[in-house]
Design a protein around this nucleic acid. Structure first.
Length: 150
DNA sequence: GCCAACGTTGGC
DNA sequence: GCCAACGTTGGC
C-alpha cells in the first residue's frame, strides 16, 4: 500500500468530475518518471491525494484511490489528438496509465497551507522546481494530511 | 502574463 | 555522450 499525489487541472478534470464519473483513466501523462510510477509502483488500493493545479486555488481537493493497474493509454494512438505519440505502436505502447477512483471530496487544502506545516516540509510536491504530475507521499505525510482534512 | 525550473530533442 | 535550444509546467 502506497500513497500518491496526482495533479489535475480542474478546468480539464476536477474532483467534481471524478465524483460524477466514479473513476477515470488517468490519460495524458507524457513524462517518463510519472509513467514509471504508474507502471511499476502503483497498485490497486493505493491512496491518492487529488490535487488541483494551474488554477486560482491550487491544492489538495479530495481523496481518491487506484482502482485499476497500469494499461496502455489509448490517447497515444489517436492521430491528430492532443496526446498522440507517433512513436507508440500497439505492439510497443510507450504510455500507460492507471484508473483512479473517487473516494471523497474534501475542503481545499491549499499549497500555502501545505507549505505552512513543518511536518510536510519534505513533501516532494512542494520541493523547489518540482513539476512532476505524480509524486509519492510518505505514509506519515498521508496520515498528517488526512488528520488535517478530517 | 511572467518566469524559474526542468525534461526532451537533436546536432555534433 | 555532450549540451544548447526549445517547450512545458505551474505558482504567483
Amino acid at each position: 500500500m502506497r500513497y500518491w499525489l496526482m495533479k489535475s487541472e480542474p478546468s480539464e478534470y476536477s474532483i467534481d468530475d471524478l465524483a460524477r464519473d466514479g473513476s477515470v483513466p488517468w490519460f495524458g501523462v507524457r513524462n517518463y518518471q510519472a509513467r514509471n510510477f504508474m507502471r511499476d509502483q502503483m497498485r490497486v488500493g493505493d491512496g491518492v491525494l487529488f490535487y488541483h493545479s494551474s488554477c486560482a486555488e491550487p491544492g489538495v481537493a479530495g481523496l481518491a484511490q487506484v482502482v485499476k493497474a497500469a494499461y496502455p493509454d489509448a490517447t497515444q494512438f489517436e492521430a491528430g489528438g492532443k496526446y498522440y505519440d507517433p512513436k507508440a505502436t500497439a505492439e510497443n505502447p510507450r504510455w500507460v496509465h492507471v484508473d483512479v477512483g473517487f473516494v471523497k471530496k474534501t475542503r481545499l487544502m491549499s499549497i500555502a497551507e501545505l507549505r505552512g506545516y513543518p511536518e510536510l516540509a519534505h513533501m516532494q510536491v512542494l520541493a523547489k522546481g518540482n513539476r512532476l504530475s505524480i509524486t509519492p507521499v510518505d505514509p506519515a505525510e498521508w496520515r498528517f494530511i488526512l488528520g488535517k482534512l478530517a
